[in-house]
Design a protein around this nucleic acid. Structure first.
Length: 262
DNA sequence: ACATTGACCTGAGAGC
DNA sequence: TGCTCTCAGGTCAATG
């Protein structure tokens, strides 16, 4: 579930807790989340260094390590960060634990192991190697760019929004929210939407992500007339009261209000 | 080149 | 109670 707003929250969380502390050591509890880096290399890279700053691109979090490559974390669908004072028990499913001199530690938790931890020399080339499109909240990513990157696409608008090569950061849940608020049926194809509708999707995308970031992607704090707090089987639309439909779009579960979305 | 589907992973919840 | 089945969803490889 961690999408752009969730990762933005993890970034704030790491910034507020874990910068400028010497890393005493790093414990890899499960190497399955490591990709392209061995446990010893990760340990050695971080040893006696500190986290200096962070960046985010789509669903990836980058952590600047003093005089070293960047630490890269992706959270799959169940990942998050947990900071606590030692000797706190590691939370269940902690896969990598960064232990600081201050006797506190930051745990990378990932129950379903669909996330990843790695190192990268620089953000730009890492993103390019992943084929990532522009970050959905990048200031340079404007509606003109949005339209041109969608040009020639044949699939459903929902699938395009979730395609990280086109734009990075939107996943299944927020693509539903964006299309709900834009009043557009997720099964409609990109080519079927006119310029006005696509610009509306762009504006809504920015508005939804902005507010979700401001609220720390906390569902309990999102407006009750959003789809997200009601995104469950059998629930009804917070705007028109009609029962929500649960459908599949390219194999992904989608929630749609056929009273509001056309 | 682009779209779609299944696999990966694990635990919660449903159904019997 | 306990077993089995299905489902969640981010990404990638395989297939269309």
């Amino acid at each position: 579930m961690p999408e752009l707003p969730d990762v933005a929250h993890f970034k704030k969380y790491l910034d507020a807790t874990s910068l400028h502390q010497t890393i005493r050591h790093t414990v890899v509890h499960d190497r399955a989340v490591l990709e392209g880096v061995s446990a010893p290399r990760l340990r050695n890279t971080l040893q006696n260094r500190s986290f200096e700053s962070t960046n985010r691109w789509g669903k990836y979090l980058f952590v600047e390590v003093q005089q070293s490559p960047w630490l890269v974390m992706h959270f799959g669908m169940t990942g998050f960060l947990d900071y606590a004072a030692e000797p706190a028990k590691s939370p269940a499913h902690a896969r990598v634990v960064y232990q600081f001199d201050s006797a506190c530690r930051l745990a990378y938790v990932c129950q379903r192991k669909l996330g990843l931890v790695t190192l990268a020399e620089d953000i730009e080339s890492f993103g390019r190697s992943q084929g990532l499109g522009p970050d959905a909240m990048d200031e340079h990513f404007d509606s003109g760019q949005f339209l041109s990157r969608l040009d020639g696409r044949r699939g459903a608008i929902k699938s395009a929004l979730m395609n990280q090569d086109i734009l990075a950061g939107v996943g299944n849940v927020y693509s539903d929210e964006i299309l709900f608020q834009a009043g557009i049926d997720p099964t409609r194809t990109v080519g079927d939407l006119d310029g006005g509708e696509l610009r509306n999707v762009y504006r809504t995308l920015r508005k939804v992500l902005r507010k979700a970031i401001d609220r720390n992607a906390d569902v309990a704090r999102l407006p009750s007339n959003w789809l997200l707090p009601h995104r469950e089987r059998g629930r009804s639309c917070p705007r028109c009261g009609q029962e929500l439909d649960q459908i599949k779009v390219s194999g992904r579960t989608a929630y749609v209000c056929h009273g509001c979305q056309h």
